[in-house]
Write a protein that binds this DNA or RNA. Sequence first.
DNA 1: CGGCGGTTTGATGTGACTCAAAAAGAGTGG
DNA 2: CCACTCTTTTTGAGTCACATCAAACCGCCG
Lengths: 248, 248
Amino acid sequence: MFSHSIASLFLEKLEARRRFSDAARGAFLALPAHEEEVRADRTIVRQGERSTRSCLLREGFLSRSKDLRSGDRQIVAFHVPGDLVDLQSVLVMVADHTILAHVASTVVSMAHADLLDLADRFPEIGRAMWFSTLVDSAIFREWTLNVGRRDAMAGTAHLLLELHYRLRAAGRASDDTFEMPVTQSDLADALGLSAVHVNRSLQSLRGAKLIRTFRRTVEIEDMAGMIELAEFDPTYINPEGPRQLRAD
Amino acid sequence: MFSHSIASLFLEKLEARRRFSDAARGAFLALPAHEEEVRADRTIVRQGERSTRSCLLREGFLSRSKDLRSGDRQIVAFHVPGDLVDLQSVLVMVADHTILAHVASTVVSMAHADLLDLADRFPEIGRAMWFSTLVDSAIFREWTLNVGRRDAMAGTAHLLLELHYRLRAAGRASDDTFEMPVTQSDLADALGLSAVHVNRSLQSLRGAKLIRTFRRTVEIEDMAGMIELAEFDPTYINPEGPRQLRAD
DNA sequence: CGGCGGTTTGATGTGACTCAAAAAGAGTGG
DNA sequence: CCACTCTTTTTGAGTCACATCAAACCGCCG
């Protein structure tokens, strides 16, 4: 179909920091991209499999997770619309984690080989992809802190704030409300807690008048209080700092 | 002609996967690199500061960590000789974590600006740097799992195995013995545990005849048992799949 | 020889887990 | 619109892994 306009979604995302040269854009748009619908609770990439394509999440909500023999699972990242999901594995032989769709999602994918070839021909594109994976890295580090050193309530608050921040950046949330597209048990797997305890942490947050919840939508009632409790500093999501640095 | 420059250490590391073209090598070696000795327990980069240089650890042992107001600390990575330590922050304005030398170390540094310029001119160099940060990423993910879902004994075992594996790859350890250049309290900060509990986990490992320790050297007495307990799979450290994993 | 970081031990406390079941939604079909 | 089931959230009770506190011990070094 319109692989032309589909690749442009990818392109747009990579150009978030700086617009590419016309040559680079042209080459990018000439590549084949493939759009796919994924149903809720379906696995996109399975741990241990060889993956050959990278994808951009157009709509929906994904997680990446690692499994233990015991059946325990650690979610290491969530992905919101607009995220380049799998650039982490371009240079890697075998996926070291599973990617799962939590709601019906649509995903645009391109071949690793094509992307790498492009990076070779246009350093500006290579740099944009590199940058994108560095942001992921920063999020991984923050999660390690969350899981290792914050207590349940602060960790939960931090995760909610991150989700809110990123969903809002993706145009999927208002200033204080967002739809949380995962179950409490998923949150538990992201926080290294049990589902029961996540439930109780959420209750504590409600009790402290920090958030309100109706079904799966979360309202951040006291943003300052949440930020304080979680020691949330979104710099790690936007590592260049505010957008003013566009020296063209 | 190349081998005498300090930059050549950097270069060697980046070329681990594939040798660069002569042009790229020449350009690389023409850049200024700076060697520096760091004393034990000195901070190299402080969280919140702007960092303008990246470094390669020539000798010694470093950690990267994030701090909480409470004083709690989470170590998110260790670095062994040969590691490119700070490529993570080339594209970033402000360091989101602290880098600390645990023993006297020597570090070779180059300016971010120079490295980025090089990446622009030689995509093969850009790719090598990208790749290096992707390996770091994989380690971050594994640590999140370690901290979030493994119990104290398995987590400790996993960390010891990772250190051993990487130190051996760096030529700093024998097949079953290595020098652990950090205190138990540092291990605790890496594992999200208390120092006391790390001590007890080490005792459990000794009691189970899995390891032996004399001072700070660790001997892995039962490698198979350790790997089994920790569910250790070093693929994440060598994501291309070293010799053995080359399926078909 | 005394001081100092690091390790080890013991005692006690608690945050988070497990198990189990009730309550509340969400989806399905009659 | 109700009856049925399945999933998710919520509650309660009991337990455990790991934390905290405090002191003793040890090796190292000046």
